[in-house]
Amino acid sequence: MTTTPQDRALLLHALHRPGDPLLLANVWDAAGARLVAAAGAVAVATASAGVSWTLGHPDGDRADRTEVLAQTARIVRAAGDLPVTADLESGFADTADGVGSTVTALLATGAVGVNLEDGLHGGDRPLRPVAEAAARIAAARAAADAAGVRLFVNARTDVFLLGVGDPADRLAAAVDRARAYTEAGADGVFVPGVTDPATVAALVEAVPAPLNVLAGPGAPPVSELARLGVARVSLGPGLARAAYAALRLAAEEAYGRDTYDTIAGGLGYQELNALLAD
């Protein structure tokens, strides 16, 4: 790498432009980082689900923090001078101070962005209380400030994704959480589970930070999301799901039909080998 973490962090901030969104084809390993870079990516993002799956864990705060950070470091090295933002679920910690420690460790990998979500896996409620989630965002911000890196903190609220509460109240609830998180130091807000253009537009209007949405089959095209004022579009675990589907199909074909047609459509050995050559 020829750029500093601060250089890459400032670039990541500059890439969040409402109406001209940063498109992130989320990856889970070093080869994926090289592939999306070759396809034209200007930044690289990890998908927590994809990283967890490739490490042999289900998604949902089940992966080991040390393993996730080691995988993130590999992705950062493969990404070269492109800024990398890492999805760290809820921060792999029970407390706000623990989230701060996780962010300090993340910065040591060279990543310059982080997703932190308010979902509460395995708890007695689907979401953390707003004040608790905001304190975790504040801890992440403080850890980055102490390290002297303008980390892009992307605060994710799962109000829509998890279908929390009355549908008529979800927009207001998501906006309330978004405002609390930006006040705590978040630089952007991620609201997965929203694809309706009217709701997206309402979030853009009400959220005081660049809005990130999750795209995929059934979602508006990036051009439409740009028109609505979205600043960041993520593909999330979609690419990992597609890749693993191809793997399963190829294996089922070999075991069940004694043919190799799925493999025939894959990338070439030399092409992939060259991709990771120094």
Rank of each mutant, 00 (worst) to 15 (best):
L171V: 11
A172Q: 07
L275G: 15
G50L: 11
T46L: 05
A198I: 10
T104Y: 12
D64K: 15
G56V: 15
L11P: 08
A274T: 13
L211E: 11
I137Q: 00
N212I: 06
V68R: 08
I137A: 00
A174D: 15
R227E: 13
A277F: 13
A139E: 02
T195L: 08
A14H: 04
S52E: 12
A63D: 07
L106E: 07
A47M: 01
A168R: 13
A9C: 02
R257A: 10
L35K: 04
A86G: 01
V164R: 04
P126H: 13
R62N: 14
R65L: 08
V51C: 14
N154W: 14
A138P: 00
L239R: 14
V200F: 02
L267P: 13
D145P: 00
L171G: 11
P221E: 07
G193I: 10
A202D: 03
G216D: 14
A9W: 03
R248T: 06
D61G: 05
G163P: 07
P58W: 10
P58Q: 10
V200S: 02
A250K: 00
D158N: 05
V103R: 13
A111E: 12
A242F: 05
V114P: 01
M1W: 10
A202P: 01
E271F: 03
G80E: 06
R150C: 03
L171T: 11
A254G: 00
G80Y: 04
L161D: 06
N212L: 07
E205K: 11
L228W: 10
A63Y: 05
V175G: 13
L12E: 07
G265S: 01
A209L: 12
M1L: 13
G80V: 02
E205F: 05
P129E: 08
D61H: 10
A138C: 00
G91T: 05
P21N: 03
D118M: 14
L116E: 07
A93T: 04
T109H: 11
